[in-house]
Design a protein around this nucleic acid. Structure first.
Lengths: 187, 187
DNA sequence: ACGTTTGCCTATAGGATGTAGGCAAATCAC
DNA sequence: GTGATTTGCCTACATCCTATAGGCAAACGT
């Protein structure tokens, strides 16, 4: 049997794709072994455990998400930045549901840096609103709550089977968020 | 070996408690078998599968949550109802993280009724704001997003290790929600 | 060409799910 | 109370997934 030429990166990438296609739960060592036509034990040279593999997907996803969100807000500010930031976030989650699900799993201490980039991006979006101090923290938490909450409910099917289409609700939610941040900045 | 006198209700209740104590993932047939000092195979007379057991926890949790939220909004309306509704929601999630996690898992068709009660309660809260038609649906989705999003991020540790305390952010979020609903009603 | 690294193997043990078939305690009918 | 039925639990088994240990040979560096 020749070698497949596997390494950690290829493994994690394929695992992320499997997560998007079959769900985060479907990511197992056995499944990856089947995917590469390799014995499951062989994978442990590339990854420490199933939990580690899944954490690596989260790291990958957080990086990709930060990249897209960063590109979306570059050169924009205020409402414009907020809308593009939010859209990038939701689009990523809908395009990559498995990767997005991975980001919700708690990361081990030594991989935590990946999560930080995202929070900092949210602060960057806020800069256009002129919010500072504790207001900024409250705002970051509110933005995170709305984006994650809406996305999560939409992905788990909570908004389907009922009119109007969720896209409209999404725009209303982002508008409301913009109005709130503007109001907070005035006070 | 005498009988333990197990039935579905006892099993699901104990499983829900285990979920709260050890996490939703910890709910397995083997774990429940250990808990009741019974062989794992014996549990299949009470529950069809692990997935079924977990779905039953979701049904239980949705019922309990609807009960508490219902009690919280009884006799109140407007901002007052919204705040109490939101508090009941968050308090339940913090007191019963495992049960709350269960509600996020998609339910099989035949158990879906349990989820409906919650959505209807949200509509009831809205009544005080005088929102109707599509506005009401957008509002329900926004409320759900904020409550679930904040709660979920808070539970997964996103808000810890940073000042100010999340309780303040929570109150600000609910205030903002109230202001948004009021604004929507005026338009 | 030689030594080292690295990718993959076999063997093995443990733990979880789920099915089949059986026995006996509890419950119900009369 | 005796008999029939239901119900709670059992053993035995097949299957799948995780994870460790130890080994071999292909690929790579020099």
């Amino acid at each position: 049997m020749g070698r497949v030429g596997l390494n950690q990166q290829k493994l994690v990438l394929a695992a992320a794709d499997l997560a998007d296609a079959e769900g985060f739960e479907a990511v197992t060592m056995s499944a990856m072994a089947r995917r590469f036509e390799v014995k499951a034990a062989s994978l442990y040279s590339h990854v420490a455990s199933t939990a580690d593999l899944r954490a690596q997907i989260a790291v990958l996803a957080l990086g990709e998400l930060a990249e897209r969100a960063g590109a979306a807000v570059a050169g924009r500010s205020g409402s414009d930045a907020l809308l593009e930031f939010a859209s990038a976030y939701r689009d990523y989650a809908r395009l990559h549901p498995g990767r997005y699900a991975a980001t919700r799993h708690p990361l081990p201490e030594h991989l935590l840096a990946a999560g930080r980039a995202h929070a900092e991006l949210t602060y960057a979006v806020l800069r256009g609103y002129g919010l500072g101090g504790e207001d900024a923290t409250h705002a970051v938490r509110l933005i995170g709550s709305v984006l994650h909450g809406f996305t999560d409910l939409e992905l788990s099917g909570g908004f389907s089977h009922s009119a109007p289409p969720s896209q409209e609700s999404w725009l209303r939610a982002i508008e409301a968020l913009d109005a709130t941040l503007t109001r907070w900045a005035r006070a």
